[in-house]
Structure formats: structure tokens, C-alpha cells
Design a protein around this nucleic acid. Structure first.
Length: 355
DNA sequence: AAAACGGGGAT
DNA sequence: ATCCCAGTTTT
């Protein structure tokens, strides 16, 4: 297998031409739209990303439309998709291409890799699809297919593993149709060579697949690390007022949900107990005139992230008036918020009836 | 090299 | 409960 294995790519492409889904970003070679789809699909399933792609491509048909939008608008459209740094980098890069590159979106790997939010995978995908550049993509699907078919068991979350898989993929790519090859291997991984219980009976690679031959399909690809989930306790101060307003603040600094809005809150690795600290109560009393404080529910809302287990309590602080500092109940939905808060906002009667 | 970064679907 | 997803950036 040192020279070339065009049989692998030929089989893959033949399978793809018969089994490819019709997806909106597959009917264009506009690098802007392909880039948009690739950013949305990073660590995101096609079914989950599809509605977002449709919304974004309709709201921003060109890179100029996206560049001219406010960051608030971009974040609001991105709400619910997660990994919000993607939205910030998306907007940054749109402005860069619009202003510095005269709106001409790059299509070469070497230019694409310089863009914020574009790494090896995304640069390879766009370059291969939009300008037939033979750069092999390596995503989760590619790791799975190659590790099984070729029996490559180097852990994929190591520097060595990444290099070996990238080299193997690069040696397998069809230089005549790199975009089709790249999409074919990803589609095959997503639809056929799935993570758990793949139907190896009838697979086009069954006779060749080393993983199948060794009965190790279920153990491939090999991963080394395991992300540990840390508990964290959130206490949100949901201020209501007699003039129908609440308080929202923007999450600054680095960390989860950077750039999104939230109710004022405390965050700790320990629960705070059954009452808010006196200092907090005194602050709101002196600033807004505190009428009453109640905890919304006894049991915390548990919100799971890939690396956090959030225990959230909501405290309702009734005040006299918030005036200009406050946000009208009816306008809360204009702000991009984490799903945890969106769920609360939609079920909290005071806000729900405000619409 | 390892950790941070979301949310949802599948088993 | 566990794993994983058309990964990238920061530490």
C-alpha cells in the first residue's frame, strides 16, 4: 500500500455517488457558502446544523451581508448551536474578507488556513471542494473509517496519531476529484461506518477491512484521553420590577458562553445553600428597592455540557423599578442567551405572559 | 501535550 | 450513563 490505493478511493466515490444525501451546501462551490457550512458543521451533526445553515445563508447571502451585520445579530442567530467562539470568529473573518480582501473569499489551503476559526480540516475541505486542491480532510468520520479499514490503532488524540492519519488520508485522496473524495469518506463514516454497531455485513470494504478481520471494529478508533466533567453551581438573580423590566448582562472574559447575555449571577464550585448572601440582598435593596426574594424552584436545573455539570438555581428578586438599566420583558428574546437560560425564560410565567 | 469550549442525538 | 459529532484555539 505504499504507492497508491486508488481502489479505496474509487470504491468510496462509487458508493458516494449512489448514496450521497442532497444537502444545500453541496449544490454550490461558492467558497463563502462552503465556508459557512463548514464552520457550522464543526463538531455538529448535519441534522443539527442544517436549520442554522439555512437561516444564515438566507440572512447573509454574501460575505458582505455577514460582515455588515452586528455581532449581536450573529450571536442571536447562532443561539443554541454551542461553541460560540465559532460565531465570533465567523463574524471576524467575514469582516476581514469583506474589508481587506475586497470580498474575494480565498480558496487555497495556504490562504484559508490563515483565517480565524479555520484549521486544518476546514481549510482542506474548502480548498478541495472549491478549487480542486488535493488536501485530505481528517475529521471524526475519517479517523473512524481509516482506523478500521487499515487497522491503524495509534490514538487519534495524540500528535503522532494526527500526523499518521493525515498522512494516510493524503496518500489515499483522489487527486482528480479531491472534493468528491473528501465528502465521500465523511459521508461513508457518517452514514455507514458509524461509531457503534456498524453493519459490517454488506460493507464495500468487508474483504479488505483490517478492523473487521481482527474483530476490533468496536475498539477503533483508539482514544487516549477522557474528559472529566466537573460540577459547577450557578445562581441566577432574576430581577423583576413593577415597571416590567429585568436585568441582563453580557458575559465578558474567557470561558463558557463568552459574549452571550445572562441574568446577573454567581458561579462557584460549591453550592451556596438555601439563601442568598446578605451583601447581595443589601446591594439590590439599596439600588432598586427590594420587595421580595424567593427561590424559583427547590430542585436545581441540571444542565450538562461536555465538560461541566451545571446545577442552576434561579432567584426571583422583586423590585420597585429598574428604569433605564432594565430590559423590557418583551425584549428579552432579542438577546442571545445560553440554552439553559432560554429554557428558563420560556417557562417563567412573568416573562412568558409579557408577550 | 492537554484543556477548554455546547448542545443534542444515538445506544 | 456513555460516546460522539464535517474541530479550533488557548494554555
Amino acid at each position: 500500500m505504499k504507492e497508491k490505493d486508488s481502489q479505496f478511493s474509487n470504491s468510496l466515490i462509487a458508493w458516494y455517488l449512489e448514496n450521497a444525501r442532497i444537502l444545500p451546501w453541496r449544490s454550490t462551490r461558492d467558497p463563502y457558502l462552503v465556508w459557512l457550512s463548514e464552520i457550522i458543521l464543526q463538531q455538529t451533526r448535519v441534522d443539527q446544523g442544517m436549520p442554522y445553515y439555512n437561516r444564515f445563508s438566507q440572512a447573509f447571502p454574501t460575505v458582505h451581508h455577514l460582515a455588515d451585520a452586528s455581532e449581536e445579530t450573529v450571536f442571536k442567530l447562532w443561539q443554541g448551536l454551542g461553541y460560540y467562539s465559532r460565531a465570533r470568529n465567523l463574524h471576524f473573518t467575514a469582516k476581514y474578507v469583506s474589508n481587506e480582501l475586497d470580498g474575494v473569499f480565498p480558496t487555497s489551503y495556504s490562504e484559508l488556513i490563515k483565517l480565524k476559526g479555520v484549521g486544518d480540516y476546514t481549510a482542506s475541505a474548502i480548498a478541495s471542494i472549491c478549487s480542486d486542491e488535493a488536501q485530505a480532510v481528517v475529521d471524526g468520520n475519517v479517523y473512524r473509517v481509516l482506523s478500521r479499514v487499515f487497522g491503524l490503532d495509534t490514538p487519534i488524540d495524540t500528535t503522532l496519531g494526527k500526523r499518521q492519519f493525515r498522512e494516510l488520508a493524503q496518500q489515499l485522496i483522489d487527486p482528480k476529484q479531491p472534493g468528491t473524495y473528501n465528502q465521500a469518506i465523511m459521508e461513508f463514516g457518517a452514514r455507514y461506518c458509524v461509531p457503534r454497531n456498524p453493519t459490517c455485513e454488506g460493507c464495500i470494504f468487508q474483504s479488505k477491512c483490517v478492523g473487521y478481520k481482527l474483530g476490533k471494529v468496536g475498539e477503533l478508533p483508539v482514544k487516549k484521553g477522557k474528559t472529566k466533567v466537573r460540577p459547577v453551581y450557578h445562581n441566577y438573580l432574576v430581577v423583576t420590577s413593577e415597571d416590567g423590566k429585568t436585568l441582563l448582562e453580557k458575559r465578558e472574559g474567557r470561558g463558557i458562553w463568552q459574549g452571550l447575555y445572562q441574568f446577573p449571577m454567581t458561579e462557584s464550585d460549591q453550592p451556596i445553600g438555601s439563601a442568598l448572601p446578605d451583601t447581595v440582598l443589601e446591594l439590590y435593596q439599596s439600588k432598586y428597592g427590594l420587595r421580595s426574594v424567593i427561590r424559583y424552584k427547590e430542585e436545581p436545573v441540571i444542565h450538562l455540557l461536555s465538560h461541566r455539570k451545571i446545577y442552576a438555581h434561579f432567584w426571583i428578586l422583586q423590585t420597585e423599578e429598574l428604569k433605564k438599566e432594565g430590559v423590557d420583558y418583551s425584549r428579552i428574546e432579542e438577546f442571545a442567551v445560553p440554552v439553559l437560560l432560554d429554557n428558563f425564560i420560556r417557562e417563567f410565567p412573568v416573562f412568558a405572559s409579557g408577550k
